[in-house]
Design a protein around this nucleic acid. Structure first.
Lengths: 124, 124
DNA sequence: ATAGATGCAAAGAGTTTGCATAGGT
DNA sequence: ACCTATGCAAACTCTTTGCATCTAT
């Protein structure tokens, strides 16, 4: 991924416009608005390359296809709206994680997914 | 799922023996020890039916295939070992969840996945 | 001009479904 | 004997890969 193709630019623009984690299908849909001739394989290839380049990070959500978001954000978690299926970042974290694991286990990380209804869907 | 087939019995036995969340592939592998002629489609069909019957619940883990575990357990979360890929239950919960979500959102539930190394793998 | 990136289509992995048959009741 | 549940294989969905072509450099 050394070249600055318009496909790659459209994909990057999709993330800058969305400001939330996007699934490969969402990326395709958004980026195709600008670039009609864009294949899903190219989306996957670029997402993978951008993760390797440290531009994006994968957001793995329980029971959902992987999402991707801009890398370098502060430690945060995710909120999935049950109605519109969109995923949002939430800042901050919780306490008491260490107390959950058995003594013999080593805790190296955690992922927290909140579910509920987002503001938009709640209003509608 | 009204009949008491040996397939279904073998699947149920797998969960009782494992005492941890199992993926469809793990269920197949364990149940096939008793019942050589067992197809993966039957495992999927029974897992689905047992979830609908309230015998099992689905455990959705970030970036992992769904697991299943006996239903009716107290509120708990899961720990995934990075080395052996097994998933374990951990009891208890964390505090401060409500503070994470924007005021206009409604928080209905949460899933917490801890990752690290289990006791067995740490010892080895 | 050259070599990397793309689009398409085919191949994989995981899950679901259709259909003839085995097996609970 | 009946009719559900099974096994197999095909279908589906999501993701990855092969290959000829396009295109950024």
């Amino acid at each position: 991924m050394e070249r600055n193709t318009r496909q790659r630019a459209a994909i990057r623009a999709a993330f800058q416009a969305a400001r939330r984690p996007l699934s490969p299908a969402e990326v395709l849909e958004i980026a195709q608005r600008d670039l009609h001739r864009l294949g899903i394989a190219t989306v996957y290839r670029n997402l993978k390359a951008m993760v390797e380049d440290g531009l994006l990070t994968a957001v793995e959500l329980p029971g959902e296809p992987d999402r991707y978001e801009m890398a370098g954000l502060a430690h945060h978690h995710h909120f999935r709206c049950r109605t519109c299926k969109r995923v949002f970042d939430v800042t901050g974290c919780v306490e008491g994680l260490k107390d959950l694991v058995p003594r013999r286990f080593r805790l190296e990380g955690h992922e927290l997914t909140l579910v509920g209804q987002c503001g938009d869907c709640r209003a509608a």
